[in-house]
Every structure is written in structure tokens, then in C-alpha cells.
Design a protein around this nucleic acid. Structure first.
Lengths: 159, 159
DNA sequence: CCCGGACTCATACTAAAGTACCAAAAATAG
DNA sequence: CTATTTTTGGTACTTTAGTATGAGTCCGGG
């Protein structure tokens, strides 16, 4: 009994347990003298004791087991947007009011193509490319292809 | 007894419990007739029963309570990448093996700055800037600042 | 039909970019 | 301290980029 008490002393249920034990002992002592005459009483008596203390044990264990419900916080590095899926900023692009040809030229220009290379790819003369490029610069409000490329990438007008 | 059995029937421990009970009943029956003559035996008897079944109950409960040891997993989105948070591709940058000065020049170059502007910002002569720029082009394996800018942005070497 | 926008091309010119080669401080590593 | 790399700067030159201006063609809408 003392052993049990010391075991459950740290729990606030220890006191309750002790009281229950005391009350039960008195009740049992009373029953012991009142119904001892009955032959088979001891069987029932032991059975009830067993059941009671089993239930008590279970209840105690469940109370004591409560802290075992642990909470684990797992920080998860969110697998955010897939590695740079590019989407054109249509709004900004529309503001520029580029013509189809100018847009085509800008696309190649933004890839680092020279005027001559752009001319070859679009089957244009160097002069025509220069004209388009100049017009693009005006509309984009830049003064060099370097600025044009930087701005295009920054505003997500080209990949 | 039957009630207890039915309660714990779903558990694999139910059988073990039943067996223990049976054995115990026989042991108790034996002790009952052997030491009934001793007056105060009933007290010890009940005490042992109580202790035994309490421990048994605790043990049973702990076994049955195993599923109660829950792991509450809280997934917490680590405030990850905000809309295009830029991070430099250190690996690619290292491959280029740029010197500190060359890197500084590239930074400005990638912003669309002209050689003269770069010279002003870094307090260098135009000649020096041209030298650095040429070296950067060699190391980046490009032939113009346009390509350099495009490649820098593509490889995420500059913002 | 003809006007305007889009597209094409050309010439002439200036400015900037880029290459090649050199060289001397300055910093750094062995 | 010496060797090497980095940094700085220069000259001379070629190439490309960029501007300005003009002009011819084509096409759709008033």
C-alpha cells in the first residue's frame, strides 16, 4: 500500500486513490463480518475486489497515460511553385503597345541575338531590324538593347 | 468475469487475462482452504488481491492505451519563397571563376549599364571597364553584353 | 478611293561596344 | 621575399549598335 502510494505520489490522483482505498477497506471490513456466514461469499467478494481494482487500475493508468499524447511539430519546407515556371506579364506587355513585328524582334533581342542574327532569323535586312529595334526602344523607354533586355526580364515580358 | 472478458475480447490480451484469472482463482481457492484458519489472513488476502488487480489493471490499460500515444503532426508552412524571391545560383557563379572586380562589373552590366556608367559607378577609367568586361565575356563564353545579360539572368547569377 | 498604320529597306552618321596587346602598380599566396 | 594574380590603365583598331531621315509597299476602314 505504501509502495503504491509512493509510486503514485507525484500524481494528483494519489490522494484520491488513498481515500478510495480507505473507504473501501472499511466497507469491506463491514461486509466481511456481516456476510461471512454465507459460504460462497468469499468468491463473490474476491471477484468484486478484483473487478473494482482492475477498473481502478485501468482508470489510474489512463489518467497517468495522458501526458503520453505528444505533439510533434514538423516544420516542412513548403515545396513551393515548381522551379521557375515562367508566365508572361501580359499586362505590362500590352502597355508597350508593340506591333507584331516589333514583338518578334524583341523576343530575339532578349535572347541576346545581335541585329544581324535577328535579321537572319526573321529574313529581314539589317536596316529593317534596326528600325524595329529603335521603335521598340522608344516604346520601352530605354536607350540600349542592354536596358531593353534587363527591363524585359524584370517585367517578365520575355522568358 | 464474463463481462470483463467481453470487454477485452477485442484485445489480444483478453485471452492472457482470462488465463491469468483462471489460474489466480484456483490459487486463491487453494489458499482459501489452507489458511482460512488464520484470523487476519483475509486482510492480507484482500490487500494482495487489490494490489495485484490494480497492477494488472494498470498494465492492461497501458497495453490497451498504446493507440492513445498519438503523434499530432502539425505541418507548418515555413514562410517560404514570396512571389519571386531571387536567390543567386552560387554554384553557377563559382564555375565562372570571376574575380571580385569582374563580378562587380557584371552586376552593373546586367542592370543594363553602359561601360561609361559602370566606369562612373566604380570610379574606373573606361579602359579598365572594357578590360574587365572583356574578361567577363571570355569567362562566361559569350560575345556581347546582350548575351552576358541574358545568360546571367537565365542562370540566376544576377537578380 | 485614299488615309493611316504597319512593315520593309536604304543611306549616312555618331556613339558605343568589343578586341588585341601592352604595362605597371597592388595585393596575395607560397 | 619572390612569384603569381588581380587590378588598373592605356593605345589603336574593328565591329556593332543606335539615330535620323526618307521612302516604297501593303492592307483595312471610313
Amino acid at each position: 500500500m505504501i509502495f503504491l502510494k509512493s509510486v503514485f505520489l507525484r500524481s494528483k490522483h494519489a490522494v484520491l486513490y488513498g481515500l478510495l482505498m480507505a473507504v473501501l477497506i472499511f466497507v469491506l471490513k463491514f461486509l466481511q463480518w456481516k456476510f461471512l456466514i454465507v459460504d460462497y461469499f468469499l468468491d463473490i467478494y474476491v471477484g468484486l475486489i478484483a473487478i473494482f481494482f482492475t477498473v481502478l487500475g485501468i482508470w489510474l493508468a489512463l489518467q497517468l497515460a495522458k501526458p503520453r499524447i505528444e505533439t510533434v511539430v514538423i516544420k516542412r519546407e513548403a515545396a513551393t511553385l515548381l522551379p521557375d515556371h515562367f508566365s508572361i506579364n501580359e499586362a505590362e506587355l500590352k502597355k508597350l503597345n508593340l506591333t507584331a513585328r516589333e514583338h518578334a524582334v524583341l523576343e530575339l533581342l532578349a535572347k541576346g541575338y545581335s541585329n544581324t542574327e535577328i535579321a537572319s532569323h526573321l529574313f529581314l535586312s539589317l536596316s529593317t531590324v534596326k528600325t524595329h529595334v529603335s521603335n521598340v526602344f522608344m516604346k520601352m523607354d530605354v536607350k540600349s538593347r542592354a536596358q531593353a533586355i534587363e527591363k524585359s526580364k524584370r517585367l517578365k515580358i520575355t522568358p
